[in-house]
């Protein structure tokens, strides 16, 4: 009985943010609302958010993040699977070393390093988003697949499952929670990377921050900062519904 109460309280603690943050985000992109609220910061003058409506900037931003995530699922999961097959220890260690390196190198450096070859705009931003999102997905995927109890793999093999059947019926379902946690981390992190992408001319909510900073318009900066923070918190809370509690 007590566990039931505790469980429902815990799930309430997960559902509430998943409703609250998106609701605030939706309110924030209502045309004119947030700029008017923040007007006092600009001496009472309503900041000019440009010709693109806020909801469109938020959608573009979300589009960057989600399309990068889609690419990452298609690239990262097979990669994690490939390096965790038996007899590929050296490849797995290489993948771990490379993802560790990717985690260390600053976001802006990765984005900026792509500029000389890809030019400014969406292309280097997407490359940066995909590379950055790849890191937690691959490392969590590898960790999740490695964490599958060897006895289960032994039982599955002993029952006559082929390598592919073991992967689909046992290893992937069991490592799914860890994999999803990695996907959540990378999605949330990429909201931030996409913000910086605005400095490369990719658009999205970061555009408001960059423009605000260059025009020394604090209110405009705040509009962008609040909306991108809300987007990150919303995605974190919503994806949190699908991942087990830590």
């Amino acid at each position: 009985m007590t566990t039931l109460v505790a469980r429902s309280r815990r799930s309430l603690g997960r559902v509430l943010p998943a409703l609250l943050w998106p609701a605030l985000l939706l309110a924030g992109v209502v045309p004119g609302l947030l700029p008017r609220l923040l007007a006092p910061l600009a001496g009472g003058e309503v900041p000019d958010t440009g010709s693109t409506p806020l909801w469109q900037l938020a959608l573009v931003h979300l589009g960057f993040v989600l399309s990068a995530e889609a690419a990452v699922v298609l690239l990262g999961v097979p990669l994690a699977v490939a390096v965790t097959r038996p007899g590929r220890e050296a490849l797995m260690r290489l993948a771990e070393a490379l993802t560790g390196l990717g985690q260390t190198v600053p976001t802006l450096a990765i984005l900026a390093l792509a500029v000389p070859t890809l030019g400014l705009g969406v292309k280097p931003t997407m490359l940066g988003l995909v590379l950055y999102a790849l890191v937690p997905v691959v490392s969590n995927g590898v960790a999740g697949l490695l964490a599958v109890d060897p006895a289960l793999k032994d039982a599955a093999e002993g029952m006559g499952m082929t390598g592919r059947q073991r992967l689909w019926r046992v290893e992937l379902p069991l490592s799914l929670p860890v994999l999803l946690a990695g996907l959540r981390i990378s999605t949330v992190y990429n909201v931030g990377t996409a913000t910086i992408g605005a400095a490369l001319g990719a658009g999205g909510l970061g555009l408001l921050i960059i423009n605000g900073l260059s025009q020394q318009n604090t209110a405009l900066v705040m509009v962008g900062a609040i909306l991108s923070a809300l987007l990150a918190l919303s995605l974190d809370a919503v994806l949190g519904l699908f991942t087990p509690p830590e």
Binding site: D149, A151, L152, D154, A155, A156, E157, G158, G160, L174
Partner: peptide, 21 residues
């Protein structure tokens, strides 16, 4: 093939190895 062979042979291990999902 080993998989065919194993499907005709029952296998019980100490760790039991029931699939938790």
């Amino acid at each position: 093939r080993p998989e065919q062979l194993r499907r005709r042979i029952g296998y019980v291990i100490q760790q039991i190895g029931l699939f938790p999902h």
